[in-house]
Computed example of a mutant assay.
Amino acid sequence: MKILHIISSGGMYGAEAVILNLSRTLNEISHSSVLGVFSNSANPNLQLHEAAAKEHIESHLIPCTGQIDRTVVASIRTLAARTNADVVHAHGYKADIYTYLALRRSLIPLVSTCHTWYDNDLFVSLYGMADRMVLRNFAAIVAVSDEVKLRLLKAGVREDKIRLVQNGIDLRPFDNATPSLRGNTPSNHAPIVGLVGRLAYEKGVDIFLRAAASVLVELPSTKFVVVGEGPDRDKLESLIDELKIRESVSMLGRRDDMPSVYASLAIMVSASRQEGLPIAILEGMASRRPILATAVGAVPTIVLDGRTGELLPPENVEALASSIVNLLRDPSRQESLGSAARKLVEEKFAAERMTVDYLHVYEDAISTRAKSTAKSFAPAPTQGKAK
């Protein structure tokens, strides 16, 4: 089976990690995964395309100028034909809409994964409304969590089209990774607390930084790192200066050595206000890191409170700071939580399980499309002759 993935990427984040993990595993079991990555004129964000090339995963760029570019429709149509795709799998509202416009009259079944979405401004809200209308015409729509499934149902997507597939990761890169951040601290023994995510309001990076300021009052040698890029970087840099914690906080931007970054952390924090099923948390758990996370979205299904990490209320600086201090003072608990986290990921969130689930989705989509096509071309029933 050949699957063509289409995405307008904002950088190397959760959806991109899913595509790489899925493509890698599909190719290893004799299927074929091909990528079509938008090259947006304003923000190209070609990291996924470059990462795929390094792993010898076939990837093609789709030039896109501005928010609306009619040439993209022709590019997707041509790419689908050239790659002889059995299924086209779109990721994200922009990819959904363009893929539908390109292939709505094609016999190729369309699948979409709704990783999550945020209606944080008018333009994104309008795109989101158009996306949900388009999704009703796809053969199958994958939700990564129950919360996303509920939003799809409220948007009018038929329940029989929705499939729940939890994210999975390739565990191999996180085995025996060497810490890479020790050199960033004055002392190799200073504990590092980290947050990995897009620098945007929904990720709660500001909450993390305010909690860091409180922790430093009690444990001044602690170091904090934020890994990721995003639109709020300037605001967050200003907040660091306002809190007077510049010497203890590093904004590391995008990193290409994430297994080594996770291996450097004493604790990993997710302070999100909104989430789906975050890949960063799964990667931290695969790295045996204890997780402190806000109980939003599907996070409570992977961070089991008191077993694989600790769950906290969102928007609560004091609770997060207190949990960080208590966990830093208890190395044995750090180790036990981290070991349990790794075990859970091995059992339930490996890429192999995710890939099998997606193959079932693709097979169902092909079958559904074939039945729909056969019905469309079936001859009309003839009228019986009058006696």
Rank of each mutant, 00 (worst) to 15 (best):
G309N: 09
I279H: 02
A280M: 06
G276Y: 12
S339D: 14
S287Y: 01
M285K: 02
G309W: 04
P313D: 08
G338C: 03
A266T: 14
E352L: 13
A263E: 04
A263S: 15
A340Y: 04
R329L: 13
L304F: 12
D257L: 04
E335A: 15
I291G: 00
V261C: 03
F349V: 05
I281Q: 01
S332G: 02
E310P: 00
A321T: 11
M285I: 06
S336L: 09
V261I: 11
L265K: 08
E283C: 07
L292S: 07
V269D: 00
A319W: 04
S264A: 11
V299N: 02
V299H: 00
S336F: 04
A280C: 11
E352F: 12
A271F: 04
V325Q: 06
E315G: 05
G276V: 14
P314E: 04
S260I: 08
D305I: 08
V261H: 00
G253C: 14
A321V: 10
E346C: 09
Q334I: 11
N316W: 05
G297I: 11
S272P: 10
L304P: 06
A350N: 14
V299S: 01
E310S: 06
S270Q: 09
T294Q: 02
E346Q: 13
P259V: 08
M251W: 07
R273V: 13
E352S: 15
K343P: 00
R329E: 13
A319N: 09
L265D: 07
V303S: 06
I267V: 13
T294K: 02
M268T: 04
P278H: 06
A293Q: 00
S322Y: 05
T308Q: 07
S287W: 01
